[in-house]
């Protein structure tokens, strides 16, 4: 039986789409947030959609449209304010989870803190007990946590090099 290569390509891409949709559903099924419908905007500002936040995993934001369809959008394609909203939601959920955990455990674990003997972090200089990121990429990587939350950046502008500043 002879099958054209175009047909195979179409069949393969359809399978990938179905698999992606299934995996997204599975991915976010256990991670449902409060269903608050809001307007989401893409990074260009041209496209908008009304949907509720469902979850986040590995750079993908899952949104449930008003017709109940579930879609996933890359985090970096959302507007900066939408990205902040996602981080806020994740942070809120993380705080709630932590609270539940702490209530369950009577033992309070001390907050981990680095010291001078700790292993050096990549692209980082440790000076005066502080880890100074040396590249823009390492700053952004460190500021965007894996769970979607963020840390602010302390940018020190100084006259002089690391060994001689005021």
């Amino acid at each position: 039986m002879i099958v054209s290569s175009t047909w195979i390509r179409n069949a393969l891409s359809l399978s990938v789409c179905v698999l992606a949709a299934l995996s997204c559903d599975a991915l976010f099924a256990g991670d449902r947030a409060d269903a608050t419908t809001r307007t989401w905007t893409d990074i260009t500002g041209k496209f908008q959609i009304d949907a509720s936040f469902e979850g986040y995993k590995i750079g993908l934001v899952s949104l449930r449209k008003t017709d109940d369809d579930l879609i996933s959008v890359p985090m970096n394609r959302l507007s900066s304010s939408d990205q902040r909203y996602v981080r806020y939601e994740l942070r809120r959920k993380q705080v709630a989870t932590t609270k539940d955990d702490s209530e369950a455990e009577s033992e309070v674990k001390p907050e981990p803190s680095r010291n001078d003997d700790a292993e050096p972090i990549a692209n980082t200089k440790r000076m005066a007990g502080i880890d100074w990121r040396c590249t823009v990429k390492s700053v952004q990587t460190a500021a965007n946590n894996d769970d979607g939350t963020q840390r602010p950046v302390m940018w020190f502008r100084v006259l002089g090099d690391m060994e001689g500043f005021m």
């Binding site: 803190s113 100074w132 990121r133 040396c134 602010p152």
Partner: peptide, 19 residues
Amino acid sequence: ARVQKKLNDKFVCCYTNTK
């Protein structure tokens, strides 16, 4: 020590030499 802990735990630090 308090400054070090605050900066390492709550912030990402970088610097620019303005020379």
